[in-house]
Nucleic acid binder design. Sequence first.
DNA 1: TTGACGCCCATAAACCCCCATGTTATCCCA
DNA 2: TGGGATAACATGGGGGTTTATGGGCGTCAA
Lengths: 151, 151
Amino acid sequence: MDRFLSSSVNRIDAKGRVSVPAHFRSVVQKRGYTELYALRCLDQPAMDVGGPDLLDRYEQRIAQEDPFLQTADDMSFFCHGDGAFLKLDQDGRITMTDFIREHTGIGQEVAFVGRGQFFQIWEPGRLAGHGAKVRERLLKLRQAASGGPAQ
Amino acid sequence: MDRFLSSSVNRIDAKGRVSVPAHFRSVVQKRGYTELYALRCLDQPAMDVGGPDLLDRYEQRIAQEDPFLQTADDMSFFCHGDGAFLKLDQDGRITMTDFIREHTGIGQEVAFVGRGQFFQIWEPGRLAGHGAKVRERLLKLRQAASGGPAQ
DNA sequence: TTGACGCCCATAAACCCCCATGTTATCCCA
DNA sequence: TGGGATAACATGGGGGTTTATGGGCGTCAA
């Protein structure tokens, strides 16, 4: 299967390196990505990581904004900001740069979360908090659709 | 019969493996699944397990949403981030990863519960508690419908 | 020089292939 | 109908391979 799926937490070593989960690496290879791009999420303390198609996705998102307004420009600056390529070393590890740490709050451990076409990098504690909120919203959606909480 | 029916409890061995009930395996084979997709239930400490088509259905649902709104993001976070593929080994066993144990509370034993188009994985004690609540709700429903507790 | 980064290797744990064993259910035949 | 052979199954373990993680060392640039 060639989708980024599931989540796991890996430790950062003394040199600032962390292993990308083996399953994610095989997806990267299957998709033929030679480079990984890491972009700052617009509304979460996470990084979106993927191949060139991830850039397309972000550009579509930004294109939705009125080009005469400042927002589109700000968004582009924010996400593309520094060039954030991630290089996989020979052992399948990436280095946690300050660029990533500042936005995510990552310290000693990294949570990898599959998102289908791409994956995300989180600080594990923040991920847990975010996950709880997501579940709550989805539950409300379901209850609203079924006509009431009694189901 | 090509539906997942009945329930049973199997033990986890020292390596973290547990046999999927033979009957479930034959259903899996009849349906032509080469891998299993497991998803953390939204509101229960259980995993839903089915074929890749289960994931396809979620992805088709997501495709109906505006990809840049929160709902689409939440849905993807749920079915991709809280999902995983399970590999059946040659003896028809799966391994209980931390990913599954964290959500279900599974320790030494696993309860498999047939649900027709898919099946579920529970920690046996929690399943018993959940079963009791389900029966209670159904009983109340019936009593309310018949106008009183006298049936 | 120092620190960031590349390449290489070591090791412990996790994982997956294969086969063995004991138990239960099924079947067949006397 | 009873009893033994057989098959199916859950479970245990050996051993090789993969993975995550730690660390050594050389290079290059500030």
